Amino acid sequence: MTATLPADLRDVFARCSVAELVTLDELGRPVARSVSPSYREGGPCIAVRDGDGVGDPHVALLFAGDGPTVLVQGTAYEHGTLHVRPERVYAWDGDGPDVEPRLFDAHLEEVRSGHNEEPEVGHAAPTGGHGLWDHRLDELDCALLACVGPDGFPFAARLEVHPDPRGGVLRLPRVPLGMPVDAGPACLHATDAGHAEGRGPRVHGDLLGGPDGWRVVPHAVLDA
């Protein structure tokens, strides 16, 4: 029940008219898109009016605006519309990547900050291969990064992006604390605030690490 969450997080659910929904496709790859959430105070779920159906019930909803940035990892089911039942809730009380999140578990009680201790279940491996560069990536400066956590739930956060056309990659100089980054499939979704020409593209590719930090190797660039 969301009623046990702090009031500031419930306020985020109530006032946000747009959120980012992350689902998993048939190959276990994350797919991010903007949706319209609906929340009833103290209700057990968050409704997503334009979420469509999902094949895998493991989903995530990212709320970012005034106040804390809140990520809900939950299980989805259809009951007239898509409903997301929270299993874990992360809340960042600042914009910097060094801010450690508050973490609430399946009972929506606060647990040890920023650390998810669910058992690892594994996720899809990187596809591999060279990146496919697209001119729409040249002006990208920030975006939502969606990946798959070690417990099988998608995870998402907004972060800074540095395009590297020569290297054919999108570099991620600072990953937020609490984000379980690991080599595997990823999705970058540029929202209005993250692209110089308005709503930017959605990028599907591989999230890879290295001595120079994390990067996304784009394999497909689609209109958001």
Rank of each mutant, 00 (worst) to 15 (best):
P150Y: 10
P150V: 12
P150W: 09
D151E: 06
G152M: 01
F153Q: 01
F153I: 03
P154C: 03
P154E: 02
F155D: 11
F155T: 12
A156W: 02
A157F: 09
R158Y: 13
R158F: 13
R158K: 14
R158Q: 15
R158N: 12
R158G: 15
E160S: 09
E160W: 03
E160N: 06
V161W: 00
V161I: 11
H162G: 07
H162I: 06
P163C: 04
D164Q: 12
P165W: 07
P165V: 10
R166F: 12
R166I: 14
R166Y: 10
R166L: 14
R166H: 13
G167C: 10
G167F: 05
G167V: 09
G167P: 12
G168H: 07
G168D: 06
G168S: 10
V169F: 11
L170M: 08
L170R: 00
R171G: 04
R171E: 08
R171M: 07
L172I: 06
L172F: 05
L172Y: 03
P173D: 01
R174M: 15
R174A: 15
R174Q: 14
V175C: 09
V175Y: 04
V175I: 15
V175G: 09
V175Q: 06
V175T: 09
P176I: 10
P176F: 07
L177F: 11
L177D: 13
L177G: 10
L177C: 12
G178P: 06
M179N: 10
M179F: 14
P180T: 08
P180E: 09
P180D: 06
P180L: 10
V181Q: 07
V181L: 12
V181I: 13
D182Q: 15
D182Y: 08
D182S: 15
A183E: 15
A183H: 09
G184H: 02
G184V: 03
G184P: 02
G184D: 03
G184F: 02
G184C: 04
P185M: 03
P185K: 01
P185F: 01
P185S: 05
P185Q: 04
A186E: 00
A186V: 01
